[in-house]
């Protein structure tokens, strides 16, 4: 396997894994306050799925020779990137819906083509991830639908969440093609199959009718159907915001990383104990076998 291909894949797969792990935080922060027991159960299962996605993806990256602890360390020290969207706060219950509908929706648009990526273990992990993600997107849509058709306050909560997440969700596809240096190579290697702008357009075309069905407005005055192109036109995104968040200045960039570090630090003694115990078990078994 050519070294640059391996390196690019490890970077992409581990970034995706890190995004799943950091992505547990914004929604996880609503588990304790979910407004019904059924919603609480669904949300808990969803955040648990994200931990599971992290596990498959780290495993896929390990098949390329990078140990999991090394990837954890890259995230811990802030050298690794993860999706910037998770540096935004989940302030209200409706944000849980908006994350499911828009953030998971954008993720699926990105990920479905990756099920056919040239590296098998990654593609196969993505098949399972996408199945669960499409369930997540539907649950987000359903949260927003219920809120949008609930009380006036609930409707407002849903609209406010969509207003805040729409732009950052569209930016999840990355910078415009004209400003995306690595894309061409990844497409040549069939790791990435469509360009950032192609995927973003596909996503916008998908969510416009969905927003209408929700009874919510997408916060873009330039959004309109273009008969000639057969696609929706949409306004320029705030790329200054994007690059600023990407550089680590997101509203919660520091908190997300601190949360992760605290969990790793506080769990260190547990991992040491588990390793010591496993080592001793192994020795005892070896001694028994030798006796």
């Amino acid at each position: 396997m050519p070294e640059p291909y391996r390196k690019t894949l490890v970077r992409q797969v581990s970034q995706h894994a890190h995004s799943e792990i950091i992505g547990m935080q914004p929604e996880g922060n609503w588990i304790s306050r979910a407004p019904s027991l059924k919603r609480k159960a669904i949300l808990m299962a969803k955040v648990q799925d994200e931990a599971g996605h992290g596990l498959y993806l780290y495993s896929a990256a390990e098949t390329l020779g990078t140990p999991r602890d090394e990837m954890f360390d890259q995230l811990y020290t802030g050298r690794a990137k993860y999706s910037s969207i998770f540096n935004y706060p989940a302030r209200t219950w409706a944000d849980v819906g908006a994350i499911g509908w828009l953030v998971d929706g954008a993720a699926i648009t990105n990920q479905v083509p990756l099920c056919r990526a040239s590296y098998g273990p990654y593609g196969r992990a993505m098949v399972r991830v996408c199945k669960e993600e499409s369930f997540h997107q539907r649950q987000g849509w359903e949260i927003l639908y219920t809120l949008s058709h609930g009380t006036e306050e609930q409707h407002q909560m849903a609209q406010d969440a969509v207003d805040r997440f729409y732009g950052p969700a569209l930016q999840m596809f990355g910078p415009p093609d004209s400003d995306s240096p690595n894309s061409g190579q990844s497409m040549a290697w069939n790791i990435k199959r469509f360009s950032n702008d192609e995927l973003r357009q596909r996503f916008v075309d998908m969510i416009v009718p969905q927003a209408e069905a929700l009874g919510l407005t997408l916060p873009d005055p330039d959004l309109q159907w273009n008969e000639e192109r057969g696609h929706y036109d949409f306004g320029e995104l705030d790329w200054d915001e994007f690059f600023s968040v990407l550089k680590g200045n997101g509203p919660l960039s520091r908190q997300r990383l601190e949360h992760y570090r605290r969990a790793r630090d506080e769990g260190a003694w547990v991992r040491e104990a588990a390793a010591a115990y496993a080592g001793r078990q192994h020795q005892e078994q070896a001694a028994l076998a030798g006796a």
Binding site: M24, G28, M44, V47, Q48, A51, R262, A263, R271
Partner: peptide, 21 residues
């Protein structure tokens, strides 16, 4: 459930979430 995203190992995030669920 408040262990989710705070467990000592990823497998334990999954396990404790499962028990809470």
């Amino acid at each position: 459930s408040s262990w989710i995203s705070r467990a000592p190992e990823l497998e334990e995030d999954v396990a404790l979430a499962n028990i809470a669920l």
